[in-house]
Simulated scan of single mutants.
Amino acid sequence: MGIGAAVVVVSALAVAGIAVATLTASIKPTVDLGGAAQTELPIPEIGAIPGGVNLLLVGSDSGQGDPVYGERGEHLGDVTILLHIANDHSNATVVSFPRDLYVPIPECDASPGESAEGTDGGTDRLNTALSYGGLACTVKTVSALTGLEIPYAAVIEFNGVVAMSNAVGGVAVCVAERIEDEYTGTFLDPGEHVLEGMAALQFLRTRHGIATGSDTARISNQQVFLAALARTIKSDDTLTNPVRLYGLAKAAAENMTLSTSLNNVTTMISIAKALKDIPLDRVSFVQYPTYSEDGGLLPRDDDATVLMQAVAADQPVIAESTGAGSQSTGAPAQTETPAATDAPTPTDATTETTAPSADPSVPVALPPSISGQTAAEQTCSAGRTLDDQ
């Protein structure tokens, strides 16, 4: 069973660096001790990271041996999300990759610390890359799939989601139809619910209680949470509350495995400064386009090219509709899996695509097979009851 763990990492990374600066600024006046110890040293000024950023966020389902999550099998990366920040920091795109997407897995070295034995390569589900060669292998796999260089990456576990949702003080999510899931213990009536801790984790993990019950429907449900989280951090006092910021930074540090390139405060602060001023309507969450075949998912290559060309060109993107697990406020729930997930093969359903505009400020209208939303859009989870499962 997959998790939506990585959806909170985007905000965690953004505020972790800000927390350091905010807590430092909140320290009371110092006491003059006299002598050499009083010598004033220069304080470095850290600005936004120059240029664009590609950062891969992976949610592991290992459970870290915690018995509360029951017996876990392989160490799989059941959530894989790519965060792209434009070169001029005017927009950001967050691409979710389905766990059951069949892709070429490159040759990867063993990573004993991640219980990964290495692989000679081959074609397999994306979520197996973490078990084959750890975080580095997942980065190599996604980089080859997207054509993007990915210098930063992080892994988060179940307990990290619990800790960070607690630190932010909960996230208010909208539920359109009742969610009932015996597997995760998620039972939510229509309306607004403030979720934190284990309740937030289970909401992000639920699949059976969402629309079609597919992992791709779960991704769009996770985007409901992520967009709400982004609005929460922007609208309340999170960015100016030292205690809350410190809690997020501490939770991130204690519950995430970071790439060497990301494991320093200066880098985190500089990425945070690049993220913090992007308008909500220029932060887009989209799902990598796929089609079903023989029980698995394959890339919808032509539509994926439109998406990745837009990302590479630093253009904001707009999805035509939300996925099966969510709906726009006031709109009817989707009852069938959209073309992005259970569509026929490309030879049976061809989508017209257009190249991105030369003007990087013009949003690219994505093909219908690519679902998603912006952080500014109000959406609700499209649930289903036990009777429909």
Rank of each mutant, 00 (worst) to 15 (best):
G4D: 03
V7H: 08
V8T: 05
V8R: 03
V9D: 14
V9T: 13
V10S: 07
A12C: 10
L13Q: 12
A14D: 07
A14H: 09
V15Y: 12
A16K: 02
G17W: 07
I18K: 14
A19T: 11
A21S: 12
T22E: 11
T22M: 10
T22P: 04
L23C: 10
T24L: 04
A25D: 15
A25V: 06
A25L: 09
A25F: 05
V31R: 12
D32N: 13
G34T: 12
G34K: 07
G34S: 06
G35W: 10
A37D: 15
A37L: 11
A37H: 10
Q38E: 15
Q38T: 15
Q38K: 15
T39D: 11
T39N: 04
T39I: 14
P44N: 04
P44L: 09
E45T: 13
I46L: 08
G47S: 07
A48Q: 07
A48S: 11
I49E: 05
V53E: 04
V53W: 03
N54S: 14
N54A: 05
L55I: 02
L57P: 05
L57F: 10
V58L: 08
S60D: 14
D61P: 01
Q64P: 03
Q64K: 11
Q64E: 11
G65L: 09
D66M: 04
D66W: 01
V68S: 15
V68C: 02
V68N: 11
Y69A: 00
R72F: 00
E74S: 12
L76R: 06
G77W: 02
V79S: 12
L82Y: 07
L83N: 08
L83K: 00
H84D: 09
H84Y: 06
I85E: 05
A86E: 06
A86I: 05
